[in-house]
C-alpha cells in the first residue's frame, strides 16, 4: 500500500537516507525504530510532501508522490505531529475549523461524538472550552489523536503520541491503535509498542 523506493536525502553534509526502501501493507501497524537523527519524523514529512527527497519515490495506493497526487496523499493520511502543532485557539473552534475544510466537511462532528472519544482518551469534559495553550503536553497529544480518529482516514502517521502519557493511558492508546483497521505508522520510544504482537517493527 505504501512504498518507499530508493529514497536519498541529505541535509547539508549529513546523509539521512541512502537508498532507503520500505514496504507497508494495507492494515499493517508498523513501528519505525531507528536512533535519533536517522530521519523517522522526516519520513512522515516526506510522505506528506513537507520535505522533498533528493532522489527516490514514494508510492501510496499506486500513486506516485508528485504535484498532481499531492492532495490525495495529504487527504488520505492523518498525521499527528510530534509536538501536535495546533494553533492557539479554543479547542472547539479548532475542531470546528478542521471539519469545515472542504475535504472534511462530509464528516459530521457533534459535541457528543467528541465527548465519546474524549472520554475514552480520559480527556477532561470541558476540554473543548479551553484554549490550546492551556492544555498539558499529554492532553495535546490525545487531542491530536482524537482529531486523527475523527478524521477517519485510511492511513495514520503517529509521531510520539504516547511520550507524555502515564502508563495506564499508554496501554489504552496502544490497545486502541492496534485494533484499528487502518494502516498505521508509528514513531515512539515507548517500549510498550513493540511488545504488542500486532505491531511490526521496522528497524534501520
Amino acid at each position: 500500500m505504501i512504498q518507499f523506493k530508493d529514497i536519498n536525502l541529505s541535509f547539508d553534509d549529513k546523509i539521512v537516507f541512502e537508498n532507503f526502501n520500505m514496504n507497508v501493507l494495507e492494515g499493517e501497524k508498523v513501528l519505525l525504530s531507528a536512533p535519533s537523527g536517522k530521519g523517522k519524523s522526516t519520513l512522515f514529512k516526506l510522505m506528506l510532501g513537507f520535505q522533498k527527497a533528493d532522489r527516490g519515490e514514494i508510492i501510496f495506493d499506486s500513486k506516485r508522490l508528485e504535484k498532481s497526487n499531492l492532495a490525495y496523499f495529504r487527504r488520505n493520511i492523518a498525521y499527528v505531529s510530534q509536538d501536535v502543532d495546533l494553533r492557539n485557539i479554543k479547542v472547539w473552534d479548532l475542531i470546528d475549523e478542521i471539519f469545515s475544510y472542504k475535504y472534511n466537511k462530509h464528516i459530521k462532528i457533534t459535541k457528543e461524538k467528541i465527548m465519546n472519544v474524549g472520554e475514552y482518551l480520559n480527556l477532561p469534559a470541558d476540554i473543548i472550552e479551553k484554549e490550546v495553550s492551556q492544555l498539558s503536553g499529554g492532553e495535546r497529544q490525545r487531542l491530536g489523536l482524537m482529531i486523527c480518529i475523527l478524521l477517519d482516514r485510511k492511513v495514520w502517521l503517529l509521531d510520539e503520541i504516547t511520550s507524555g502519557l502515564d502508563k495506564e493511558m499508554k496501554e489504552k492508546v496502544v490497545d486502541y491503535v492496534s485494533k484499528q483497521e487502518k494502516t498505521i505508522l508509528i514513531i515512539s520510544h515507548d517500549k510498550i509498542w513493540s511488545k504488542n504482537d500486532v505491531v511490526r517493527v521496522e528497524e534501520w
Binding site: R74, S81, R87, K102, Y103
Partner: peptide, 22 residues
Amino acid sequence: QNKNKYFYSLSLSGNKIEALTP
C-alpha cells in the same frame, strides 16, 4: 515562525488556501 503548525494544517486540509486563511 509557525512552519510546523502550517504543515499540520496542510495535512488536515490538503488545501493550501484553507491552511493559509488564518
